[in-house]
Amino acid sequence: MIDAALTFAFGCFGLAILLNLWRVVYAPGVGDRVLALDTMVINAIALLILYGVKAGTEVYFEASMIFAMLGFVSTVAYARFMLRGNIIE
């Protein structure tokens, strides 16, 4: 039963990443693209965690934590660049 649930979740998050990619390409503004990229990072983290559950190993959980930290820092840096024009003052 867990295999069916994991397969369904993989399909849902895979579809969500494809829809986010479509939004990144066809978004009307830069803010929408940043939001779509941030949502894509969250969906990729969910896929890493699901794969970790399916594989039964803890390495993917640690990788998802690193990916979450990098995604957060990159979103903040890009938002700061959009507001001020530079990242480091």
Rank of each mutant, 00 (worst) to 15 (best):
F81Q: 04
A79L: 15
E62W: 14
V76C: 07
V76Q: 09
S74E: 03
L37I: 07
V25K: 12
A4T: 15
V41P: 02
A77C: 10
G11V: 14
A16Q: 13
Y78W: 11
A44C: 08
I2L: 12
V41H: 04
V34N: 07
L70E: 04
I42P: 00
V34D: 07
L70C: 09
D38V: 00
E58V: 10
T75Q: 01
F10K: 09
A46I: 05
I45Y: 01
F67R: 03
F61I: 11
L37Q: 05
A9L: 08
T7E: 10
T75F: 04
Y78A: 13
A68H: 00
M1H: 14
L50N: 03
L83R: 13
V34F: 05
D3I: 14
T39E: 04
N43H: 12
F81D: 07
I17T: 15
R23K: 13
F13T: 09
A55N: 09
R84Y: 15
F67H: 02
I42L: 14
N86H: 10
T39I: 08
A16G: 07
V24F: 08
G85F: 07
F61H: 08
G71E: 00
L50R: 02
F72N: 05
L18P: 08
M1K: 13
F13G: 01
V25F: 13
L50M: 04
V30W: 11
M40N: 15
D38W: 01
I45H: 07
A44V: 08
L37K: 02
I87K: 05
F72P: 01
W22G: 11
L83I: 12
A46F: 04
R80S: 11
A16S: 15
T7I: 12
I87E: 03
L47H: 00
A55S: 11
V34Y: 05
K54Q: 13
K54G: 01
V73W: 02
A4Y: 11
G14M: 03
F10N: 06
E89T: 07
D32E: 14
A5V: 15
L47C: 05
R84C: 06
R23Y: 08
M69E: 03
M69Q: 01
N43I: 05
I45E: 11
P28Y: 07
L83K: 14
L19C: 10
A63Q: 06
L83C: 08
G31N: 12
M65Y: 09
V73G: 03
T39V: 12
G31C: 02
S64E: 01
R33P: 01
Y51F: 12
A27L: 02
V76F: 03
V59N: 07
I42A: 14
A36S: 10
L15Q: 09
L21A: 15
R80N: 08
A27Q: 06
I17R: 10
Y60H: 05
I66D: 01
I49G: 03
S74V: 05
M69P: 00
A9P: 04
A46W: 00
L47R: 02
Y60I: 01
M82L: 15
V76M: 12
Y51S: 10
L18D: 05
Y78R: 06
L48A: 02
I49E: 00
G11S: 15
D3P: 08
A9Y: 01
C12Q: 11
G56I: 00
A77F: 10
F67T: 07
